[in-house]
């Protein structure tokens, strides 16, 4: 059985999939605003709910505005063993926000993430697409100052 909406089917031969288009939209706007999602649904001739379904499934897509710098701190076990908690507390203290929040000036968003494949150099985090490893609270403060 194949219940894929027609729009998705059609696309595979062409430019890209719904997921690719959503990622492009997020790159352009920083997140996925409501208008963009409905426009996309309309142009592909698929229900808005379908587009939201994909947008909400992936942790790197966001329907809420994000800061210019998205900080993702790894919270999985190997990083936890290397005291990722101290890294999180340092960032929270420096920026005055909790995971899931964005600073008032829109400069930074803080999130927690599952393993990012850098456990040999734990604790680790990413800021946008850049990977930071072997973190210590002192190192993190320096990194944040440079943003």
């Amino acid at each position: 059985m194949n219940d894929a909406p027609r729009g998705i089917e059609v696309m595979h031969k062409g430019e890209g999939s719904l997921l690719t288009l959503l990622k492009e939209a997020q790159r352009r706007h920083g997140y996925l605003p409501e208008e963009v999602v409905s426009e996309l649904a309309e142009s592909l001739d698929i229900p808005v709910g379908e587009v939201y379904g994909v947008a909400s499934f992936y942790s790197l897509l966001s329907t809420k505005p994000l800061g210019k710098n998205v900080i993702r701190i790894c919270k999985c076990v190997p990083c936890y063993l290397k005291n990722s908690q101290a890294i999180l507390e340092t960032v929270e203290g420096e920026l005055g926000i909790k995971p899931g929040e964005t600073t008032k000036d829109g400069k930074c968003s803080l999130q927690l993430t599952n393993c990012i494949g850098a456990c040999d150099r734990a604790p680790a985090m990413t800021i946008n697409h850049k990977l930071y490893v072997d973190l210590t609270p002192r190192k993190v403060i320096k990194i944040l100052k440079r943003l």
Binding site: A4, H12, G16, S17, L18, L19, T20, Y58, S59, N114
Partner: peptide, 25 residues
């Protein structure tokens, strides 16, 4: 090269294929 968008289950082979097709994985 097709990039994922952050979902562990997309490593499962059939979920991965759905993700390449642009759907929820």
């Amino acid at each position: 090269i097709r990039e994922g968008a952050g979902a562990y289950v997309c490593g499962e082979e059939t979920a991965l294929m759905d993700s390449i097709e642009g759907k929820r994985g």
